[in-house]
Design a protein around this nucleic acid. Structure first.
Lengths: 215, 215
DNA sequence: TCGTGATTTGACAGGTTTTTGAAGAAATCC
DNA sequence: GGATTTCTTCAAAAACCTGTCAAATCACGA
């Protein structure tokens, strides 16, 4: 079960560490400082509740509690001790991934994320859903816009096709990965990016794509 | 220094966009229409003076000039070309924030703050819940008015159907999103907006609607 | 209670966007 | 150098989005 979860989440583009006991979980959380912890209520050595409490003392990372009981009072206890979300067994891996994404998004929060991104002569305005190059507006489709926004939001960071698709379609994407290639192609064309030597959207062979950092 | 300023001002509650060159500053000012611009006298590519002049041609936003020289004549030049305030280095971030607040207050103006929005020949009076086009009153229903007011209050910004519905109905709307299409249709008809090429209420495919900027 | 205007719904047509699949090019591995 | 895997490209099919409209429902004052 743990192994499955790990595999699935990695496919979804997350970096996953696992722990089998509460103690281990705490150690890893302290040393690796993950963005988010998925915690089973029942654990050997230490109950999930204790682990949750302990993590909370030193970290603001997201915590999702997983439990077999659907008891409403458990949920309240769970959230009270500092969990951010609560999931009842049985649940699908898809649902878990979706909750994780939602929580991560929430944690990043209303943050002072700028309303637009820019690089060189390219400006991407989220609020206006517009992209300008050299002051000229470039017409993008919704999906293209979201992909570009995701990429450009973290220049230099490599995104897998699946990550991009999920970011753009804002939920579980259930299709052909090669779809992304088409979008990338269209984006490069519209941005005037030479496929042989792209300045904006660079392909990272075997991994995915990244937005080039300042030229 | 730029980064510090941004951080400090964001802490003070302002939404901050930054630009490193004069050209960039102009582009962003045009696309994002900020309430206020803080402008260094010395900039790469274009001098602060030129940037200031250029911004002034299309925008009434506040402009604060920052300069290293405390020369009184510079101050006069600065104010002459359209800056609203003038700050000499070195200055504390607190002072900058305080000047910004003061200017914003002044710009919004306590008394002459228009209770109406206008663009071209369209006037939207919130206080009276009336809309005039070419001096002729246009009869709108309450919902239509609120939608128009929401849109027109932030020209260029894209609102999703749900956002508009919530703004108009001022609470959680639990219905069919397509409802908005009807309202938009009626609005466009009443405003005399050509659906094929709307000047006022523009469709942003896949996202929602926006009030068109400038004519 | 009824009548009137306002709002919402549902369905269709027409247009646009997204996805697919296959074939060829490029990169990597052995 | 050849085999293998991974990317690009393209056009056609599928899915999706918007505008439109008439009819149904709702809200509210007479």
């Amino acid at each position: 079960m743990l192994k499955e979860m790990q595999t699935y989440l990695q496919r979804e583009g997350f970096r996953v560490l696992t722990a089998c006991t509460g103690k281990e979980a705490i150690t890893i959380t302290l040393s690796e400082r993950p963005d988010l912890v998925v915690l089973d209520w029942m654990l050997p050595e230490k109950s999930g509740i204790d682990v949750c409490r302990e993590i909370r003392q030193t970290s603001h990372c997201g915590i999702i509690m997983v439990t077999a009981r659907s008891d409403e009072s458990d949920k309240i206890v769970g959230l009270e001790i500092g969990a951010d979300d609560y999931l009842t067994k049985p649940f699908s891996l898809r649902e878990l991934a979706s909750r994780i994404r939602a929580l991560l998004r929430r944690l990043r929060g209303p943050e002072d994320r700028p309303m637009f991104l820019e690089r060189d002569n390219l400006i991407i305005s989220e609020a206006k859903c517009q992209v300008f190059k050299d002051g000229q507006e470039i017409q993008l489709t919704p999906t293209e816009f979201k992909i570009l926004f995701t990429l450009a939001g973290r220049p230099g960071i490599v995104f897998s096709r699946l990550q991009l698709l999920n970011a753009a379609l804002e939920n579980e994407y259930m299709g052909y990965e090669r779809t992304m290639d088409s979008h990338i192609r269209n984006l490069r064309r519209k941005l005037g990016d030479d496929p042989a030597n792209p300045q904006y959207i660079q392909t990272v062979y075997g991994f995915g794509y990244r937005f080039g950092e300042r030229s």
